[in-house]
Structures are given as C-alpha cells and as structure tokens.
Design a protein around this nucleic acid. Structure first.
Lengths: 110, 110
DNA sequence: TTATTATGCATAAGAAAATTATGTATAAAT
DNA sequence: ATTTATACATAATTTTCTTATGCATAATAA
C-alpha cells in the first residue's frame, strides 16, 4: 500500500476480510476493490499483495484455484476453514488496536 | 512495542501526541505513560523507542535537554515548532487511517 | 547482605512488511 | 501504433519493529 506508514501490518487483515465477504477473489480484483472502497485513498501495491497472498496460502489460510479468462490468467483465492477463524482473530485485533490508539490519542483529560 | 504487528508505524504518532500533551518527557517516562494509558496492553520496547526519539530529534521535531535526577541521567524531550505542526499531521493521518480501515472492515453492506 | 527489581540510557542483529523497480504477457482503447 | 488496463511475479532496498545485549544507579526483597 502506498499511502501511510500506519497501514503497515494491516494488509493481511484487509485481504482476509475481503475474502470473507466475497467468497473468492483474485489479486488484481483485490487491489481494485480496495481502491474503490476507500475512494482511491488506499492503493495496495503488487509488491506487497502477491507475496502476502502466497504467504497466507503457505500458512493454510487460503486455497488457490487457477482460471483462464479472456486468455488471461487469474488466481482465485478463497478462505480455508482455518482462514475463516483467523479472519475473526485479525478483525478483533484490529478493533483492539483502534480502541487502544484512540485511548492514547484522544484523551485531553487523562 | 511487543503486542500487535498493527502498531508498526504508530510509534511516532504516540510519542508526538504525548509530548504535545505533557510539554516535556523522558524516554522511560513515555514507556510508563503508555503502559498506564493502555492498561498494560501496549508496551513500548526500548529498542524501538530510543532510536525513534533520536530520529525525531535528528529531523528537528524534538529538542533534548539532559538532566540528572537522583544521580541518574534523564533526557527530556520536547516538541519544536515543526514538531508541533507534524503532530497535527500525524494525528490527522491516524484519524484517516482509522476511518479507512473501518470503511474496509465494517461494511457487510457495501 | 546479597540478589532482584526498578529506573534510565543505548546499540546491534535479525525479522517482518512494506516500497520501488523490474519483468512477462494479453486485451482494450487511443 | 502506442498507451493503458488487466494479470501475474520477484528482487533489491527501506522502514520499523523485536530480541538480545550492555552499562549504571537506586530501591526493595530475600
């Protein structure tokens, strides 16, 4: 992702959440979806995305299925059962992180 | 920090915000303050904190003042004018990040 | 009284996760 | 005919952290 350093560490969470909502997606589709959902604010770079997908697959959180559409290759990823469980964890972690940061940053009166 | 990978990138924001509220602080004090404010959830490691402070100083965002208390060394840091401006930016970035992530993660209906 | 914990700084080695820069290839649009 | 969009991939580098040390003093516990 090419915007804020804050996004570091949240890419996996984003990927898992999108796959949790959309059943199966391919890499390029993920980049476009994120761009659309964030109104262009967040642009996932390929150099970050593809290695992340490969790693999630290697860890058993994602399954892959190769397809050919319009003579172009697509690799569809979907959550495994483990992946679905891990999605819940990641989302909880993110909610926790946001809560913690707000506790640190908001209080003019603490 | 020794908890979540999500914290990557937010340390500078935390430091700047604390200094914005407390005028001047020393490193160890920052670690304790963060621990207290987050009820032990977030523990800044020294290996992350001290290099970060040095870098912020080198960038002209912080001024240092050495003091000796109880025969022990303390390095008090405070925001420069530039540092105060940058604090505003960092806090805006954080707010943006949180908004963006919530947009990505919350919508079951988008 | 001696060992541990707390206070207070610092840096080096390594890992994790990005950015940036390439590279390949096909399809569509200019 | 060239550029843009689609679609994958990896290598080099940078950033930012964790983990492991190291030094030193003060306070507490065994």
């Amino acid at each position: 992702m090419s915007n804020s350093k804050l996004y570091k560490g949240s890419l996996n969470t984003i990927i898992l959440k999108l796959l949790n909502e959309n059943d199966k997606m391919y890499g390029y589709e993920i980049t476009q979806k994120v761009k659309a959902l964030t109104k262009g604010e967040l642009n996932i770079t390929e150099g970050a995305l593809y290695p992340a997908l490969h790693k999630l697959e290697a860890e058993g959180l994602l399954d892959v299925e190769v397809a050919k559409v319009d003579n172009r290759l697509r690799k569809y990823y979907k959550l495994t059962e483990t992946g679905t469980k891990e999605t819940v964890n990641k989302l909880n972690e993110l909610a926790e992180y946001i809560k913690t940061m707000q506790a640190l940053v908001k209080p003019k009166f603490a």
